[in-house]
Structures are given as structure tokens and as C-alpha cells.
Nucleic acid binder design. Sequence first.
DNA 1: TCTAGGATCGGCT
DNA 2: GCCGATCCTAGAT
Length: 183
Amino acid sequence: MVARDLVGTILVSELGSHAVEIRVREVEAYLGPGDRACHTWGGRRTRRVASMWGPAGRAYVYLIYGLHHCLNVVTGGPGEAVLIRGGAVLSGLDAVRSRRGPRAADRDLVNGPGKLSQALAVTIDHDGLDLTDPSSPVRILRDDWSVERGMIRQTARIGVESAGAAASWKLRWVLDPLATRSL
DNA sequence: TCTAGGATCGGCT
DNA sequence: GCCGATCCTAGAT
């Protein structure tokens, strides 16, 4: 499962004047046409979701509620992507704080998809970016930090209550809080 | 062209 | 814990 493998990887953003690195701690999988919670449900191929049908490793960025950006990683499966929901800041903390604003507490810096995108300075302009390209300003790194079995919890997805049966599918992976203390 | 609703966030009680 | 902001997208007409 691609989504589970993304937990523990590092997201690097060199957008703006400062580099930011974030350890991925929380993801959700969206499984394409057969998944009612997914933007490509029913085989939709609109302009917005075009990147979801692209090659694996591309970014799919969309605007939600007209004001928040959400960053997804395309898996390469038909219409499939993985939403990056949260993480932990490894470096570039000052840049993240300045982007998130002075009122944001440290624990609230990247604990949500909209916040994470803001911390990385990722916007709709970066839709379709190749996250596996070493020269890309936003990319995914796999380091030698291994996620041990049992450190990841699998739960139902958040905020998709209207998706019928798909709402109860356990497609969310979260790094156990106890396992993140050493990060 | 119109309209309803959304993979959220942050402020307020 | 609750609720309003805010605007783009997609489907309906």
C-alpha cells in the first residue's frame, strides 16, 4: 500500500527563501473511481483532477472551502492519490512559523492538510509537480528512518461522512504519538 | 448561467 | 465544543 509507505518519509520544500523539511505522520488514501470520497469518483476526469490520473509521484493540489490548499501524492493507480494530512517539522521551523502566523502554536503548525500546505508554501500553482524529481522545489525523500511494525495506526478517514460506505473504509494511517517523541 | 456543497481552519463561548 | 468564513468546482438548468 503506497499510502502506508509514505508515512515516515520527508517532504522537502524549497519554495520561497527558506527550505522546510517535514516528516510525514498522517496520510489518507483515496482510491479512485470506486471510492465515493475521492475526487475521481465515478471516473471523473475534470480539469481540476487531471493530475490524479497522471504518473505516480506527481503532486495533486486543490483548493478546499475556497481558502485552504491540500497536498496529495499521486500513486499511479487510476485516479488514485494520497492526501498528506499532517507531519512534524524537522527543519525550517522559523519559516514555518512565519508562514503560519504568530498566533499558531507549535503543535498546530502542521497538524492538518491546509496547515501543512501553508507551512510548505504549496499552492494550486504547484499542482502536477513531480515530487520524485531531485531538482523539483518540492519533493519526497526516503531516508533510513524506518517505521516499525505497530507504530502506525490504521483508522477511518476524516471529514468524509457523506461518502456512504466509503466513509468507514480504514484508509487513514497515523504514526503513533508515542513513536513520534523521538523525532 | 446558476446554485449547492465541500478531503478545513481558527476564533469564540 | 460549536460555528462562521469564503470561494471554487461541478452538476443542474
